[in-house]
Simulated assay, not measured.
Amino acid sequence: MIRVLLADDEAMIRAGVRAILSADPGIEVVAEAADGHQAVELTLAHRPDVVLLDIRMPRMDGLAAADELRRVAPAASVLMLTTFGEDEYIARALSGGAAGFLLKSGDPRELLAGVHAVAEGAAYLSPKVAHRVIAELSGGGRLAHGTTARKRTGALTPRERQVLALVGAGLSNAEIAARLHVVEGTVKAYVSAILTRLEVRNRVQAAIIAYEAGLVDDTLR
């Protein structure tokens, strides 16, 4: 059972998200918070596997709460809820180690997929958020810090670079396994090695490096 804490200052949003999560028998919402400070307190009290954080909340916003949670409850995976027009927040949260981003207006299936992904130690970007991140990287904007990316990926083996490119393209382990005609366990081993060698926390940060290094081309997107 995946234990989830939900934090959003809008009661109607919380009710809607809770209803979606409750439809999955593998997910349990253990607590709700109306601001970031309360989210941190309830995380310490309930020890959820996943914390869903709205970015804009009173007292302490979602980004500050995510920073605090990384310090006091590092075992909890943070999944950010965002809206269009908050690209600068995405940049900050990714650099701070958020495990994923979801749009509030997205498909409910993305919410369930994101919770399962980050609970399993992976990362998740809803497709529309991923597109904005990719556009920012391709345009050399705030997220593009690629001066050392090629050097970092140059230390990987050719197969590891291939797997990293597919991670950057947003493919799951199962999809990568099918693409490369290997078993999923082999892909998991490659991904684990890549994260270690690149010294990054999760797949989102690895994907950013893949784009910065130019490993992801249009045929993979």
Rank of each mutant, 00 (worst) to 15 (best):
D87G: 02
D87E: 14
D87M: 09
D87L: 10
E88W: 05
Y89L: 06
I90E: 00
I90F: 03
A91G: 12
R92G: 00
L94Q: 05
L94C: 11
G96F: 09
G97H: 14
A98L: 08
A99I: 01
L102T: 09
S105W: 08
D107L: 09
D107M: 07
D107K: 13
R109E: 13
E110R: 06
L111P: 05
A113N: 01
A113W: 00
G114D: 06
G114H: 06
G114K: 04
V115I: 08
V115A: 04
H116C: 03
H116Y: 00
A117F: 00
A117V: 01
V118K: 04
E120I: 03
E120F: 02
E120L: 05
A122V: 02
L125G: 00
P127L: 09
K128P: 08
K128L: 10
R132C: 01
R132M: 04
V133Y: 02
E136K: 05
E136C: 06
E136I: 02
L137D: 11
G139M: 07
L143Q: 09
H145Q: 14
G146A: 11
R150Q: 15
R152I: 11
R152E: 12
G154E: 10
G154L: 13
L156W: 07
T157V: 10
P158T: 13
R159N: 11
E160H: 12
E160Q: 15
